[in-house]
């Protein structure tokens, strides 16, 4: 299983809000697919899958706050 985490976004940015998910649990994704859009005060940021596979878990819902390094989703890697 591969954890998708919220990466470092920049100096002083410690948290972001989940604006929307582009995928659902059980869905197949490719490595460069955007999974989720996060929002800080003045910026939106899309996090991509990085690996091809199946979304096994979405760990934070729309409107929830997440911290840098926190797990956003879990992907079961597959050779698509």
């Amino acid at each position: 299983m591969k954890n998708v985490i919220l990466p470092e976004l920049g100096e002083g940015i410690e948290k972001a809000l989940v604006a929307c998910w582009h995928v659902n649990v059980g869905e197949r994704v490719a490595g460069d697919d955007d999974l989720v859009e996060l929002v800080t005060d003045k910026a939106t940021f899309n996090v991509s899958a990085d690996v091809s596979g199946i979304i096994r878990e979405i760990c934070v819902g729309k409107g929830q706050e997440v911290s840098i390094g926190e797990v956003l989703a879990v992907i079961e890697p597959l050779n698509l």
Binding site: E11, T40, A43
Partner: peptide
């Protein structure tokens, strides 16, 4: 530098 704060 992959830094949103700095870019702003």
């Amino acid at each position: 530098g992959r830094d949103i704060h700095n870019y702003l």
